[in-house]
Structure formats: structure tokens, C-alpha cells
């Protein structure tokens, strides 16, 4: 898979995992586990990047006498998901066209 595309998709996956409420690192990895095996060192730069581009914000909460960092999606983050879905729909048309042409030629 194209690396840019993959990177963009992972970013949006992480954002999407925050749609049902704020979450923290371990929980994000868990919730993405079903579709992508993502490591801590992969998640970290994604969160940094998304925070840098103001798609999410973070805050710390005390939990069992240690700190846990929570991430919260912003309106910019929601907009990013929306854009991704629109882009993807466009790409899907291209895919269907290519797949259709390939099929037509094979038979």
C-alpha cells in the first residue's frame, strides 16, 4: 500500500476511535486491534502529528496514583474524517472503474 495513503488512513483510524469518547493510548491500540496491528511506537507519532495539526487535544487524568493521558477529538479532527471519507469515495469510483476494465479485459 502506498505509504502516504497508509499513513493518512492510520491517522483517520485513530481519530475515528475517539468518536465514541475520549480515549488513552492503550485503549486506542485495543480498539484498532481488530483491524490493524499497531505498535506503541507507531501510535505515538500519529498522536503527536494529530495534536500538532489540532485534530485532537490531550489532557492527563490521575489513575491508580499515576497519570494517564487522554486524547479528545476536535472539530478539526471530525472535519479531517469527513474529508477522508469524501476522498475515499472518489477513490472508490476510480477503483471500480479500474476493476471493471480489468475484468472486461480478462474475460
Amino acid at each position: 500500500m502506498d505509504i502516504q495513503m497508509k499513513r493518512g488512513s492510520l491517522d483517520v483510524c485513530v481519530l475515528a476511535s475517539l468518536l465514541n469518547g475520549d480515549s488513552y493510548g492503550y485503549k486506542i491500540i485495543q480498539s484498532l486491534g481488530a483491524i490493524i496491528d499497531i505498535s506503541e511506537s507507531t501510535l505515538y507519532p500519529i498522536l503527536k502529528r494529530l495534536e500538532g495539526s489540532e485534530c485532537l487535544t490531550s489532557y492527563s487524568v490521575e489513575h491508580n496514583s499515576r497519570l494517564r493521558k487522554f486524547y479528545s477529538i476536535t472539530s478539526k479532527g471530525r472535519e479531517r474524517i469527513r474529508e477522508y471519507l469524501l476522498d475515499f469515495r472518489e477513490l472508490q469510483k476510480v477503483y471500480e472503474f479500474i476493476a471493471g476494465e480489468v475484468k472486461g479485459n480478462v474475460e
Binding site: G25, Y26, L67
Partner: peptide, 8 residues
Amino acid sequence: FMEEMIND
């Protein structure tokens, strides 16, 4: 980040 992950 890593310490939190390991603790979790």
C-alpha cells in the same frame, strides 16, 4: 507514553 502503556 511507554510507561503508561506498560502499566496499562
